[in-house]
Structures are given as structure tokens and as C-alpha cells.
Design a binder for these strands. Sequence first.
DNA 1: AGCTAATTGAAAATCATTCTCATTTAATAA
DNA 2: TTATTAAATGAGAATGATTTTCAATTAGCT
Lengths: 148, 148
Amino acid sequence: MMKDFECTQESYAREVLREKGLKSTAQRLAVVHVLHTSGKSLSVGEIHDGVKDMLGATGLATIYRTLEMFEDLGIVKRLHFPDGRHGYAFSQGEHVHHMVCVDCRGVFDFPECPVESFDYSSIEKQGFRVKDHFVQLFGQCLKCAEAA
Amino acid sequence: MMKDFECTQESYAREVLREKGLKSTAQRLAVVHVLHTSGKSLSVGEIHDGVKDMLGATGLATIYRTLEMFEDLGIVKRLHFPDGRHGYAFSQGEHVHHMVCVDCRGVFDFPECPVESFDYSSIEKQGFRVKDHFVQLFGQCLKCAEAA
DNA sequence: AGCTAATTGAAAATCATTCTCATTTAATAA
DNA sequence: TTATTAAATGAGAATGATTTTCAATTAGCT
């Protein structure tokens, strides 16, 4: 197949995949395309629908497999919502944090790390070694604020 | 029923429930007890098992209902793990963040907010209004570090 | 002790995720 | 190009997690 929806994000995914000896399949690139062009976080079902729109019938299992792999590769990030649901957002690069609009689920990256400058000494005095963190901001984007 | 496993945490839960006109059932207090005495985050199944140990046969649906309610009330917090699983931890009070040991899933609270002092101006320039945040630290606790 | 709305239990229903395995395909080399 | 081959996919079954339903029970009042 291999349609021509190539853009920066697809090229990036291609490269990461090639580096790891993984195949750049139409399904995988379509997942990137759907996530990136939506500009917001999507549920697994929404991603599946988007990919089906591009490629026709596509197995749901493939979407799950792709998302899991992409998360390991740092190409997508799983986000958690207050209502218990979760979604995925495109996420070029390793250490990026996300701000999610609670109305439209739009995702905005910010490379500055809010916990970078935090003083962990009180935690580490208890013997804890902090190795990683998950930070996600919730709020309202301009569009949704105006619409309200 | 109403066994006597009353401690600070159960009293706290009782009070929050009463304030909202909700009933302090044996099942609800047992959920608090199990979570608090474990000192770590537990899966829904583990909480169910713990409650069954205390009370005998207990419906799983009740555990789900209780955890959802307790999360709204700020009595428990849902935590997300890197492997996609999630768990619940006791969480007295509203704004507490959690540090999770990736080995034993032990939970340590810290009231200092790591993003409190973060300068959101670059985000807010784009029209974003930050309203809430989810922060979770991962690492290794003293015991697990020594055991390794 | 009795009343009543809230809560529970049990099982069915629903929804999400993973697995299996036969078929297809991307990447590589001839 | 074409052939080769390991990797990836699709379809559906299997599994697992969560929610719903509704009759029976119970906590929190008189």
C-alpha cells in the first residue's frame, strides 16, 4: 500500500522504527498521522476509526500493538483523564509534558519540566530514590474558554 | 456488623461520609482499613480480597462503587503505573502527591507540590488556563533498594 | 423497635484488551 | 526486479475489567 501522507511526524516515526529494526507499515504510519493531525488526544477506538478511514478495514489488535510499541519508543504518550478514561497523544521526543484541555481533550506540549527544579531532599531523606515522574496539566484552551 | 477496626483513617472516612449524607457501611470502612494498613497501592482485586478477609463474601461491584465514590470524596487516589495498570492508595486530604516504589508499589505521600512554583506564563500566553495537575513520582524505596 | 432511602450482592451484560494462528507484507539481498 | 524471510497483520475467540440490574438487606433516623 504505502500512501503518500508523509510529513515531519511520519518521517520521524519511520526513522525511529528503522533504528530499532522495526517495519514502517501503513498501519503504523496511519496511527501517527491520525494522532498528529487530530491535534488532540484520542481513545483507542477513535484512533482505530481514523486509521480505518485512511486504510479501510484494519484490525483493532494492530492498533493496540502499535500504541504499546509507540509508547515504548516515545512516539506516543498515554494520558489519563480525571474520569478514569485514558487516551493517546503524539509525542515527539522523550521528555515532554502535556497539558490537556478538559473540554476538547486538545493536547499542548511543553518541554519545560515543572518538577525539574523541585527539591526532593525531604523525600530522599526517607531513603527514596526518585527515578521518573509523570506530570499532566489540566485546564481549558483558548477556544473552549471562548465557547463557554 | 460493624467490627471494631476503628482508627484515625476510618474516623476520617466516617466523617466525610456523614457530611455528605452517605452511609458508613462495614464494606466502605473495610476498604479504608485495607488500603491504609497495606501502606501501599492496591489493585481493585487486592482490595476486594482484603475486604473479603475482613467481612467474608463481598460483592466486587461494591468495591468498584466504593472506590469511585472515595475518589470523588478525596479519600483515595487512583494511581497509574508505567505498565498500564492502575491502583488505589489511601489519601487523606485533597492536595497530596504520591511517590510510588516501582518494585513494591509502596506509596509515600508528600504534601509539597512540585509544580506549585512552576511558571506557567509560556503556556498561558497561548491562551491556556491551567486548572489542575496530576503528578506522580516513580522510584525505589529504601527496602527495595537494599533488597536489590 | 420500625421506617425508609441508601446500599449491597449476585449474576448478567457490556466494554476493553490480549491471544492465536493462518495469511500478508516490508525490508533485504541476489 | 524478484525471491526470501522474519516481522506484522486480521479476524475472531478468549480473557479480563467494569457496569448494570434488581431483589434483598441495612444504616441512620424516629
